[in-house]
Nucleic acid binder design. Structure first.
Lengths: 308, 308
DNA sequence: GTGAAAGCGCTAACAT
DNA sequence: ATGTTAGCGCTTTCAC
């Protein structure tokens, strides 16, 4: 009978009665930011096997926040309004908040008595669960890779010094140095601002100290560094090895192809969706978790050479 | 009173009564495809000033369809099912379908008696409205730019010959040639497959005919062509000028920076959302439109040189 | 103009 | 086990 008449239950009526919409709100700071679409892809992969759906709200903050990595706080009202709109207006069962940078947003998200998962950013608020990627161990692994290849004069181009990922990555690099009985030479550490141009100018200065390798904290700065190396008539990787971070699309297009770190963004999205679903059903490995960290891994390409 | 008690109307109850959810379904073939996120960004820009919301369904077809540009038909069942789920299950008011390639999907989307807008693909079905970008005039403009710079021996690396954009772009190029009193030399036309490697191999063959410029039908093939030119110990643009198409992120990272065509993806999304809203309200410039075409434009960078 | 009441399609509680 | 009914919170209709 149910098949004969091709009956489809009305989800609206069902929701009105059960007070559950089976809709997860996805609140993205900006869908054009590098991680966002990949994270959403992971969310939708998880959702495929559930009956949750995604309601997408895109805050489009990229223009207003460009290069002001710590000023998210100014957008707090906008975020609270969007969150309240999703939860009280549209009545989503849970919210996944996708940050555009890796930073701490503690205090930005109010308690709404619904599960809120923060992806790609972190928060110590105990009403939110954050799903992010591993920075420190993989940075140590990057440094260890260079050390294993025989490098000793290793330069570092950091991101903005007051940002969380720059600090974590530097800490990881330091750990690997200590383990190898090396010390990080302060003259070989320059602070960039995550942009390509700063990679170029930092590298230009670093070359005076004749490093055999450079660890840049993202791919854009690594590419800038490669340009500086070429402009100094040196070769990558024969004269200077280069490592990046992020595994951006361009890292496979530059010549030589950039050795870098891959953040598993799809897995972040998948875990965030899983955490949201498990918190709703109060069952599963993430049901009571307040923080999950997804491992990152090295992508070995052509910018690191073994030296004697 | 309404302010005092902080009353927020229940959208679910409202929807049950009015049979309108104010939710637009966005059905994406794959959110990781190049145009998708930018189109969604345009949709959400439009939505900001309305009270529509976006329910996102990501078909994740990139893996299953890779390089099989015309086999979308095999996915027809999956698409119909998703569409029916959105419209009859979730009761969205309209659907915006975002293609991952520019191709004709006539016959793929059944009539569901709700507005359906197809973005980045085309359809001649009269129950769907397609919003796409301009191919032909801008390709003519590309060719004219080379001609204006003094080029006469202009090679072309096409995309897969049986695809719509390859045909449209070739037609545009031909038009510009005719207008300038030139003829396109068949020996200077090679068929690529949209991938970087085919740009390289096509260019290698083309170099035997000593072109002074090459028009590649996308940026990836243009970059492959640039690599072939460099490997032949020739310089871009001094010996051979190169033009791409798409304005991919990498086109600003290669050296020299690639002159290319920008497709206004955000405007496609904006117009698609506007068309959906106007069809729902039966009022506005797109209310009765079955096709809208967004102009594309040249991005002049560093790979085209003036010759004598 | 103001107010009461019916009903959207479902689920959960209750009665048989 | 099976059947009946109340009610979720709104809008629209109808009566006053």
């Amino acid at each position: 009978m149910i098949a004969k008449t091709n009956y489809q239950p009305n989800q609206i009526a069902k929701s009105l009665r059960t007070k559950r919409t089976n809709i997860i709100g996805v609140l993205a700071e900006d869908i054009l930011a590098f991680p966002t679409a990949r994270i959403i892809n992971g969310i939708s992969e998880y959702m495929e096997h559930t009956d949750y759906q995604i309601l997408l709200l895109n805050l489009r903050m990229l223009d207003s926040l460009l290069n002001q990595y710590n000023q998210i706080i100014h957008q707090k009202d906008k975020i609270r309004q969007a969150l309240s709109f999703l939860i009280f207006g549209t009545k989503v069962d849970a919210v996944i908040y996708i940050g555009m940078f890796d930073r701490d947003i503690s205090g930005v998200i109010e308690n709404m008595n619904k599960p809120i998962i923060v992806a790609y950013s972190t928060s110590s608020d105990d009403h939110v669960c954050s799903v992010t990627y591993e920075n420190e161990a993989v940075s140590a692994e990057s440094a260890r890779h260079l050390i294993d290849c025989g490098h000793r004069r290793i330069a570092v181009i950091t991101g903005l010094a007051d940002t969380a990922p720059a600090q974590k990555r530097l800490h990881g690099i330091n750990t690997a140095f200590k383990e190898a009985g090396l010390v990080l030479d302060n003259a070989l550490v320059k602070h960039g601002d995550w942009e390509r141009a700063s990679g170029y100018s930092c590298m230009k200065e670093l070359l005076e100290h004749k490093p055999t390798a450079v660890l840049a904290m993202n791919d854009f700065m690594a590419i800038g560094a490669m340009e500086a190396i070429k402009d100094a008539k040196l070769r990558v990787p024969e004269d200077v090895s280069v490592m990046g971070f992020d595994n951006r699309e361009v890292s496979d297009f530059v010549f030589p192809k950039l050795t870098t770190v891959e953040i598993n963004l799809k897995a972040i999205g998948f875990a965030a969706a899983q955490a949201a679903a498990e918190k709703l059903s109060d069952d599963g490995q993430y049901a009571n978790e307040s923080s999950v960290i997804i491992p990152s891994r090295l992508i070995l390409r052509d910018t690191v050479a073994q030296i004697l």
